[in-house]
Design a protein around this nucleic acid. Structure first.
Lengths: 360, 360
DNA sequence: CTGAAAGCGCTTACAG
DNA sequence: CTGAAAGCGCTTACAG
């Protein structure tokens, strides 16, 4: 490590097992150099108006010259407050979360908060990560993604004083933001029916996934209301645990299951875009053409969907991230206000994996 | 917020402007209840062997019963050490970073470190984010992604005592991990030539992007060594600033530029998979078929590439993230050891957007 | 407008 | 093996 040339850092006597001997410039250094008390220095950095202009100017000049930066832990400890929020997501490499997180980051960048990201790829890892995020002094607020809130996790959250907002999941006791998954399924069904399909099939992610289940239920329900039955063997549920079955391979495998059983649906609803993409690959390999032989609808509207011509149900991912941040700030400012649930309606984006339908 | 029923939390007198009046269980509470000193309590939680078994047991029992959790800021302050590392990435919604970050998280989960994520979508935002990440007490180490290390940024990094590892970028003074982008371009050129193309074109991301430039240079160089010239108007450089031109639209637009100029290359090298995907969409709309009329090679090998049949140069993204973490740990343990640069060789993944070539 | 002092919740030599 | 005490670097009533 290069030495900070000509800087005013001091070497302090620290126990030998500490690697970092530079502690940096503290308010004591500034106070001494500026000829004021540490209280005054602190006030300057906290924009306290009870400091004269002259004093403020010299403190700022000295701080600038010495390259002072407040120590975040000391500040948090003294203020009993952090400026970091934690997001607990199943997995960063899931494009849906990546998009939501981008929306969150874009909104956060205007604030002084920092983002801690915990990942909990499987259900049983969630509690541990939540516990870490809830450690005293760690987070000013927590955003929990796609987690079924019950049992120990529910208790954990309820007994904490840290504000929480749920994203892509629901519990009556906490602010939440989600998409109306049932409605999305219904829209998909109605659209496919209007486009003339007779034999629908569903490629669903893992059975324990609440969003996937709701999407499928909405789809099946709307079908039935129109007098069309979703045959048992036309619903294939993924047991691929990676990303809860929200992945390309699960879609590919699901489609192969159908094909190998001799099933030839003419309309497919996949519970996510990535599954739809996998399914299309299987279809291509089997020389079935989309949308001529079979139409297909995904869910999410990832940026890439547009370039693949995929018809899908759009979730406003970017907006969801931004709103989640707003909700958290709101909750932090008013801990006692009424719990609020924001539900977005998904919208159908018509592209080329379906034939243009004439919706009634 | 529900009251922690039957818990031993105390309400402390705090200034009225503090929302959170519960400070939680501290070592003082444990010490009192267990009839020992706070030093002993602390020793138990630090696995200090100089505590008798009996004392340890009772302290642990009490802590468990009262639901004690250490306060992270207090601990950091006293230890002069944090357990968080910071990653500064251009953007989370870029799939390449999402994959690398997944590799990082997977490796990190075995450690007790937490991950702070900063995003710097444009070049001038990097310094500000680096400064935040370098605040005293914030990070035990920093991972900086895809940033040109020069000028103020270079100085900033050099004058800091925080270990840094560079990912997808290079500077002689810091540990780094990256892919041999020039080699990737060369492989692409040789492959395309062997597959019989005569008129190559390149779809490049932003000109200031170092990885994109190297990929293009490698491609052009290998071409020339084989006596094939890359015409000036066959190299289209994106001015779309989103993700530095590493996005689908940039690829789409680049392809359209070629097409509208009446240029009909028979082999295309895109500097990323997402650009290749955008280009393929443009080709499809113009009724050109891949690989019959034109062959195309991407870069990255995103998981999705496999399902699109895209031939591409693979970067070991997951491994890069894991290695980056290892390097950082290594540097933290041995601050004075020699700087190390890890360079991965990209490998060609042959799929269906090229005709199978017979490489010499 | 300013300073002395107490306190935030830990860790750890030092002395026993 | 254990405790009293100092210290990490801030913030903020309180008194002037």
């Amino acid at each position: 490590m290069p030495q900070p040339e000509g800087s005013d850092r001091r070497e302090r006597a620290l126990p030998s097992f500490y690697k970092q001997v530079y502690v940096g410039i503290t308010i004591y250094d500034i106070a001494e150099e500026a000829g004021v008390s540490i209280a005054t220095v602190s006030r300057v950095f906290n924009d306290n108006p009870r400091v004269s202009e002259g004093t403020r100017a010299i403190v700022q000049e000295v701080a600038e010259r010495l390259g002072y930066q407040p120590h975040v832990s000391a500040r948090s400890l003294a203020r009993r407050q952090t400026e970091t929020i934690s997001a607990i997501v199943p997995m960063l490499s899931n494009y849906f979360y990546a998009e939501v997180l981008k929306g969150l980051q874009d909104r956060m960048s205007a604030s002084s908060f920092d983002l801690l990201v915990y990942s909990a790829p499987t259900l049983d890892e969630i509690e541990g990560q939540v516990e870490k995020a809830l450690h005293r002094g760690r987070s000013a607020g927590v955003m929990l993604f796609s987690a079924p809130i019950k049992g120990d996790l529910e208790r954990q959250l309820q007994h904490s004083d840290t504000p929480v907002v749920l994203v892509d999941c629901y519990h009556p006791g906490f602010d939440s933001i989600s998409t109306d998954n049932r409605l999305g399924g219904e829209i998909a069904a109605e659209y496919l029916l209007a486009a003339g399909i007779r034999e629908p099939a569903v490629l669903m992610a893992n059975p324990h996934s609440v969003p996937a289940s709701h999407r499928m239920q909405g789809f099946r329900g709307a079908l039935e209301r129109k007098g069309v039955h979703l045959a048992e063997d036309h619903l294939v549920v993924s047991s691929d645990g990676y990303h809860d079955g929200f992945n390309e391979q699960a879609g590919y495998d699901g489609m192969m299951t159908l094909l190998e059983a001799g099933i030839r649906p003419d309309g497919i609803f996949a519970t996510s875009d990535v599954q739809a993409i996998g399914a299309m690959d299987a279809l291509r390999n089997a020389h079935h053409s989309v949308p001529e032989d079979v139409q297909i609808i995904g869910f999410d509207d990832l940026p890439i969907a547009r370039y693949l011509g995929l018809t899908t149900l759009r979730q406003p991912m970017h907006e969801m991230g931004g709103r989640a941040f707003d909700l958290l700030m709101e909750r932090m400012a008013h801990p006692e206000s009424t719990v609020a649930h924001t539900v977005f309606a998904p919208s159908l984006v018509d592209r080329h994996t379906t034939r243009s339908a004439t919706l009634a």
